[in-house]
């Protein structure tokens, strides 16, 4: 079932609706948890996280609903791109950790594990996303 809003066609099949439903539940749950932050401090952290996750999921569901179902198939080319990007991102993460380690040794940066954790997480995540875009755009696979 496709509904047109202006010139945008939005699919309303059960997969899309399920995704919208989960995102709305996440937002509502997060908002409810935020109301208890005065009583339970960590509720603010979890509640905020759930609201943010819900908003991101809602936007993703909206983008997915505007594409035809055939564009969302994970075919062999998409799988190959994901694997290639993942492999390259792995080496980039190793390189980032190595650079952090030697920078700490040489310049006594007093780097702690909690400082490295978020850096490595973002380096890995964004490497994978950027590399997926790069391999999808033009290189021969």
């Amino acid at each position: 079932m496709i509904r047109e809003i202006g010139k945008m066609k939005i699919r309303k099949d059960k997969d899309v609706l399920r995704f919208f439903g989960i995102s709305l539940v996440s937002i509502l749950l997060g908002a409810a948890m935020l109301m208890f932050k005065a009583v339970f401090g960590a509720a603010a952290f979890f509640g905020g996280g759930l609201v943010l996750a819900g908003v991101i999921m809602f936007v993703m569901a909206l983008c997915a609903s505007m594409k035809p179902k055939t564009d969302l198939v994970v075919d062999e080319r998409v799988a190959r791109i994901n694997e290639k990007a993942g492999y390259s991102a792995f080496w980039i993460v190793l390189l980032a950790v190595t650079i952090l380690y030697w920078a700490d040794k040489l310049w006594s940066l007093s780097v702690e594990l909690k400082d490295i954790y978020s850096t490595v997480l973002f380096v890995g995540m964004f490497s994978w996303i950027i590399l997926r875009w790069h391999y999808n755009k033009g290189s021969v696979i």
């Binding site: 055939t70 564009d71 198939v73 075919d75 062999e76 080319r77 998409v78 033009g138 021969v140 696979i141």
Partner: peptide, 26 residues
């Protein structure tokens, strides 16, 4: 391209890259 993509179970994008010679299929 879309009809061919549906018949072989891939994305239309994959057919585009195949026709351009930028993808080596299995």
């Amino acid at each position: 391209q879309e009809e061919l993509a549906i018949k072989v179970g891939v994305r239309r994008e994959t057919i585009v890259f195949l026709e351009k010679g930028k993808y080596n299929p299995s």
